[in-house]
Amino acid sequence: MSRVIINLVLQATEQTLIMVLAAGAISLLVGLPLAVIVFSASRKELYGSPWIARPLSLLIDALRAVPFIILLVILLPVTRWIVGTSLGTTAAIVPLSIAAIPYYARIAEIALRGVDTGLIEAVQVMGGSRWMVICYGVIPEALPSLISGLTVTLITLTGASAMAGAIGAGGLGDLAIRYGYQRFNTQVMVAVVIVLIALVGLIQAIGNFAARRAAPQHG
């Protein structure tokens, strides 16, 4: 493999990592609070306000329903407004985040829902406020699932970032399309696929490790 190709792959890997990690961080920072709001609004033991939970839940589902490639195009003006351009790696972070936020919010909400009601009551009976119920009870108990959910989100983002290549976002997917698909450069294609497999494997391994650390010890 030529030096040029190696450099191309390295540069593309870096771009992909930037997109995935930035969008992943934003989806965690926005998606988790969103999940907490939907969860605590839908539980009668906590806030019990379905008029907040239902519309929010609907919005999350609506955003998830839009195919990413369409979202990419719809969001062009928004991206231009936020980043100043609609082209390049930084620009791609906007649609990727918008897609990943509802995705992670839903996964996180399901994880929170998995926590036993008895635990919520236990913290309440100790005199804990709703905030304490969530911080000391629900989130710690759901932590392993929250971490696994984030791992899934990051891997989904890796796939989605390839599509962002359509707006010149760069990254591994873009490289594979331009060199491998359009120019029939099998070498680049194979290299990209191998790097992607390694990347996804690495994310999953780190995610599994973190989730195991957060999970209760057995035996």
Binding site: G118, A122, Y136, E141, P144, A214, P216
Partner: peptide
């Protein structure tokens, strides 16, 4: 509680 309701983590 009957089912202890301890924090497993």
């Amino acid at each position: 509680f009957q089912h202890f309701n301890l924090l497993e983590t």
